[in-house]
Design a protein around this nucleic acid. Structure first.
Lengths: 167, 167
DNA sequence: CCATATTACTATGAAAACCATAGTAACAAG
DNA sequence: CTTGTTACTATGGTTTTCATAGTAATATGG
């Protein structure tokens, strides 16, 4: 994986710089899973639908780029969990903006939402924007709880089952 | 360009859906140029550093996905400009979030900013966040003017000159 | 007219990345 | 000692990328 970044070394543009790190479908999907608190290889693979190589490569690159760290959860056999660093956590607003755009422009309304977030500060729905739709304050990740809609949860369960069945 | 989207057709996840459209370095760079009001093929190619094929392919796909339209600016020879649609314009918050993350986490502070935005509503600097750092109100694209820093402007001028010289 | 310039591409071919399928390593549990 | 679990690596065919070069349609200057 070279992910050519000649340009990035030379430009002042933060978008170009960011894209050399996260400008890739699998990378973003892996980050989504980490934000969803899926920290294990298997879960990430199952929910993103990537091949082992795709996931391995992204995890390695994300670690090299400082967005995540490996944490041992089991020695013998040695097993790691992947956790977001501060830099990785800071990516949250981008994911939320992407989510908002995706919900608004890449789905038909009849399909329904995948997640609903509640703003803990005011106790009401946070909506899709960068500020809470109920109280108007900017939302931080710590101030929200996200809940999957029944339909989306079912979809994920099915994906997990299918993944497990294919072994 | 297949940009495999089997998964996307089946998932409710808006992030996955969005990524089938914009989950690609060149695509995002092209969008950046359109937001920077560079509407011509040549300018986009010069500033992104992409090959003609990369640019052609992304413009075609972005048009197919409804983020931009071609507009004739010259018949004989037939020439088009590329302009964002409403769906394309709606991508702005994602780009801004990416910019904020890139400035904060993908550059050393000594390098300095690429752009500075002024919030027209309050007349003061808008900063990096989704809400104006001066007045605290959510910022919309229409309420801001962006200005390139001298260093970044020089970088872009140099890129244009280099592009023109290589012909 | 004829040569050069302009703009937006298309053609070619080698290198890299992707994807599906299959297999391995290191153990635990029964 | 067989089966299961988790996290990968290996292989090989297909697709995409990328650098370089070339084309098409027309305008412009001499």
């Amino acid at each position: 994986m070279k992910m050519k970044d000649n340009m990035a070394d030379q430009t002042l543009c933060p978008v170009a710089r960011a894209e050399t790190v996260v400008g890739d479908r699998w990378t973003v999907l892996v980050l989504r899973e980490l934000f969803a608190r899926n920290h294990r290889f298997e879960e990430i693979q199952a929910q993103t639908g990537g091949t082992p190589q795709m996931i391995t490569a992204r995890l390695k690159k994300l670690e090299a780029d400082g967005l995540l760290t490996r944490r041992v959860y089991n020695k013998r056999p040695l097993r790691h969990e992947y956790h977001l660093t501060e830099k990785g956590e800071a990516f949250f607003p981008v994911l939320m903006a992407l989510r908002a755009w995706g919900e608004a422009w890449c789905k038909s309304p009849r399909e329904g939402r995948a997640m609903n977030y509640t703003h803990l500060t005011c106790g009401k729905p946070a909506g899709l924007g960068p500020v809470c739709e109920s109280c108007g304050k900017p939302v931080r990740r710590e101030d929200m709880v996200g809940e999957r809609t029944a339909k989306y949860q079912k979809e994920r369960d099915a994906r997990w089952d299918a993944f497990k069945a294919s072994r």
